[in-house]
């Protein structure tokens, strides 16, 4: 409708991450339980725009999506000298916790996809008490590589084109063409080497095999959801991970791939709505016990 203004509001917050100040862009909508959303490697917070615009979810959740440094509208820090960007487990964890502290969020729910789905496992391992619940989309403790990331950043290959073309096949064929194209657009816009740098966490530094057994879902409930068409983080990867964690909830999502929230928002809503309802119910039980 001409003139329609979405309820999403975007702002910048200055965040101290390990002693250095970063200017972080975030978008939010709604009121209630803070729900922080983490985008996939090489993309940005726009992936969450449909969730952010969901009027029903916004009645019970303060939905927040931020762009990681180097991504979207969050620039590299002022000190960056052009050296190769590499995301590590420690830096990713610091960034999320620092962002939540800067916004003074009270035990937020964190929902991440892909690398975001992996890092929520690390949050569950080391910092569970800081969160009300954790949701991992397309997440597992490890998954087998299926291409050489050196192709992602070299001067004789167009970075935007190759990044988008690599991930295009991770989406379900049933997902609407316009939503698939929008999902790929962010990959075509990413900075040189950023997707590759994110995958350093995914491929090299973030292997959580042998650590996820420490997750206590009684301290912080954990929900894992993976699309059946995701051949990067396969349903089997997620189920194997969950099998090592007592009490983790697992859902395999039909007709969805690696980018459920952006490749087919309507289909994703069918799966995430019951999870968010469950978190509201858990919160009601918790506050009722006080």
């Amino acid at each position: 409708m001409n003139g329609m203004i979405e309820p999403i509001v975007g702002r910048y917050v200055h965040v101290d991450i390990d002693g250095e100040m970063y200017r972080i862009y975030f978008e939010e909508s709604g009121e209630g339980i803070p729900l922080v959303c983490l985008h996939t490697a090489g993309s940005d917070g726009r992936q969450w725009r449909h969730l952010l615009a969901d009027k029903e979810f916004a009645k019970k959740f303060r939905i927040i999506a931020f762009d990681m440094p180097w991504h979207g509208k969050s620039n590299p820090p002022a000190s960056w000298d052009g050296t190769e960007y590499q995301l590590t487990t420690a830096r990713y964890t610091q960034t999320i916790r620092a962002f939540c502290r800067a916004l003074q969020l009270d035990r937020p729910v964190v929902m991440g996809c892909s690398i975001g789905g992996r890092i929520v496992l690390n949050l569950a391992i080391d910092h569970a008490a800081e969160f009300r619940a954790l949701i991992g989309l397309e997440g597992a403790d490890f998954q087998s590589p299926w291409y050489d990331t050196a192709w992602l950043n070299r001067p004789d290959v167009h970075g935007g084109e190759v990044c988008a073309a690599l991930v295009s096949g991770l989406m379900a064929p049933q997902s609407p063409a316009n939503s698939r194209a929008e999902t790929l657009w962010a990959y075509k816009q990413g900075g040189p080497g950023v997707f590759k740098g994110d995958l350093y966490f995914y491929r090299v530094d973030g292997d959580l095999r042998g650590r996820v057994e420490r997750i206590d879902t009684k301290v912080c409930p954990l929900f894992l959801l993976t699309g059946e068409y995701d051949f990067s983080c396969t349903p089997e990867d997620t189920k194997r991970t969950a099998a090592a964690i007592g009490g983790a909830s697992v859902t395999i999502m039909e007709q969805l791939g690696h980018f459920p929230m952006s490749e087919n928002p309507e289909q994703f809503r069918r799966y995430i709505a019951p999870v968010l309802d469950r978190i509201v119910a858990i919160e009601a039980e918790r506050t009722g016990r006080r």
């Binding site: 087998s144 299926w146 291409y147 690599l166 295009s168 096949g169 991770l170 379900a172 064929p173 049933q174 059946e228 068409y229 051949f231």
Partner: peptide, 14 residues
């Protein structure tokens, strides 16, 4: 609508 795992050239190589 190919089956999962058969829907992409690199899914097939994997």
């Amino acid at each position: 609508a190919p089956r999962p795992g058969f829907h992409d050239l690199l899914a097939l190589t994997k």
